[in-house]
Simulated assay, not measured.
Amino acid sequence: MRRWHLFEIEDQRWLPDQLRNLITDLLQYQLIALRVYEPVVPKLKELIRITNCERIIDLCSGGGGALLQIQEILAQEKQPVSIMMTDKYPNLEAFRRVRRLSNGQIDFYPESIDATSVPDNLEGIRTLFTCFHHFRPDVGRKILQDAVDKKFAIGIFEFTERKISNVIKMILFAPIIVLFQTPFVRPFKWSRLVLSYIIPLAPFIYSWDALVSHLRTYSVEELREMTPGLEREDYRFDINKLNLGNRGISITYLIGRPTSTIGNW
Rank of each mutant, 00 (worst) to 15 (best):
M84L: 08
Q76T: 11
N91Y: 04
T86Q: 06
K88D: 00
G62P: 06
Q76E: 14
V81R: 10
E93P: 13
Q76L: 13
E72N: 15
E72Y: 09
E77N: 05
R96H: 14
D87G: 02
R97G: 12
Y89N: 04
Q71Y: 00
M84T: 03
E72C: 12
I83S: 02
E72Q: 13
S82E: 09
T86P: 07
Q79C: 11
Q79E: 11
R96M: 11
E77W: 02
G64I: 00
L67Y: 03
A94G: 15
G62K: 06
F95V: 03
L92T: 14
I83A: 03
G63H: 10
L67E: 01
Q69D: 10
E93I: 14
E77A: 03
G65V: 10
L74H: 02
I83G: 00
I83V: 11
I70Y: 02
K78S: 15
A66H: 08
G63W: 08
D87W: 01
E77T: 03
I73P: 05
M85T: 01
G64T: 00
T86W: 09
V81Y: 10
E72T: 14
R96V: 10
P80N: 08
A66K: 05
A66Y: 02
L67C: 04
D87P: 04
Q69V: 03
G62N: 06
L74F: 00
E72R: 13
I73H: 07
I83L: 06
L74S: 03
A75L: 10
A94V: 13
R97N: 13
R96T: 12
L67S: 04
G62C: 09
G63N: 06
D87Q: 04
K78H: 15
L67Q: 08
T86H: 06
Q79L: 10
